[in-house]
Design a protein around this nucleic acid. Structure first.
Lengths: 232, 232
DNA sequence: CTCTTGCCTTTTGTATACAATATGCCAGAC
DNA sequence: GTCTGGCATATTGTATACAAAAGGCAAGAG
């Protein structure tokens, strides 16, 4: 038998629909607060309402949609309070990821992370924000992979999706950006030293800083439009 | 207007079915690994397959069911590894709960917790394990309530449900029980002192101890039957 | 006797039809 | 002019019907 033979990826319509809608929500094509019409959406996706409704349940479970009985579903909105709460949890989870990663990290992992760190510094120097966010995400993903805890990774991913759906990444103050890059540098040092506690604390503070940045942005109404704020 | 007027709880069949099945799984009436027949279950629950399938999606999202394309759903099983991972996350989350609770705890909260602690000591002294677990859960729930972070509470609850579905609570070694009660006592002291860091560390260690107890029980095959182990 | 292969049954996946609820509009009363 | 009530429409909730896939069994080949 050939070991390379693995089960072909069979996907059902609800899964495919959920994946598609998830992407649309995260990238902002479906804005927070938007109401989704079952019939219209099922027509556009080329499936019937039944599998679409199952996809709705999946995404509601992930916090990306909100289902109102007899009144349909809408893309979830988050208040500043909810964002604060989500970041508190994310900080604890990423802290745990750092702790676990410090126990398991290999020389190869460190080498890879140093490459990513260099890319981050380059993106920072070039003031290339999209590249920075891409590398930043790659680094955090890699840390999760090193931590090797699927439950942790899944939970992190879910919270991240909800936050990314807010699209708050539009702007980043120079000073905060500098600090974030410096924090990443310190994290790499702690990881190389296998100092789990230090890494956890660094990640905690790193996420709390991101939390403050996002909340400030929200307070400045840079993204007030996505908060589902219905002016009274 | 009367401030006490709040929207009446209207529940749809998928929600009701999910709630019912969740309870059945957690209390063990539906054993891990059990295959659920849609037609039979929908008949027994008195609804059609459509809302039942939506309930399945909800519970699969919570990790209580596993859906196999074209092969139906089964009550989720957890390997020892998965249990270990779940407890690692729970430890971080409960640690966060402690940290947040220390910032917000009031004198009234402390008084209530001291009552619960006394009940716990009584259950411990009487060797009343069910009562102990009940009070233990009440204390942790109360801590979550004080922490006042719905996202945290929800995530904790979901992980707890998955773990409780394993029904590993059957036995508890005397020594570990004694230690757990002592840990709770220490936690109350840290909380009264508003020492968030100490409380976080205590909860972390408390959960890690529970993790070891459960993993030991699993290794001793006390609950091997629920692990979905199909003897080869 | 064992393994394969094809058919039949069962079960799941999807679409559609029907029921119930909500939404919007218009007429009428005050 | 504003508010209320009721009807028409649109949309969601549920059940059922149909399609497709999986599982089991028996017949036949080796």
């Amino acid at each position: 038998m050939d070991g390379s033979i693995l089960p072909i990826a069979r996907s059902t319509l609800p899964e495919a629909a959920a994946e598609r809608l998830r992407a649309l929500i995260i990238e902002g094509a479906l804005a927070p607060g938007a109401k989704l019409n079952e019939r219209e959406l099922s027509d556009r996706l080329g499936l019937s309402r039944t599998p679409l409704r199952e996809a709705f349940r999946v995404l509601a479970g992930e916090g990306l949609l909100r289902q109102l009985p007899n009144r349909g579903v809408q893309v979830a909105t988050m208040t500043a309070e909810e964002v604060r709460h989500a970041f508190e949890v994310m900080a604890a989870l990423e802290g745990l990821a750092g702790e676990l990663a410090a126990e398991r990290v290999t020389a190869a992992d460190l080498a890879d992370l140093r490459v990513l760190q260099a890319e981050m510094e380059a993106a920072h120097a070039a003031r290339d924000l999209p590249a920075y966010y891409r590398v930043n995400r790659a680094i955090h993903d890699r840390l999760g992979a090193i931590a090797a805890n699927p439950a942790l990774i899944h939970t992190c991913r879910t919270f991240n999706a909800r936050l990314h759906a807010l699209r708050f990444r539009s702007n980043l103050k120079r000073e905060k950006w500098d600090r974030a890059v410096a924090e990443h540098r310190a994290m790499l040092v702690a990881l190389a030293a296998r100092d789990g506690t230090a890494l956890r604390d660094l990640l905690n503070r790193h996420l709390r800083a991101k939390q403050r940045a996002v909340l400030d942005a929200m307070a400045n109404e840079d993204i007030a439009n996505v908060l589902g704020g219905t002016p009274s």
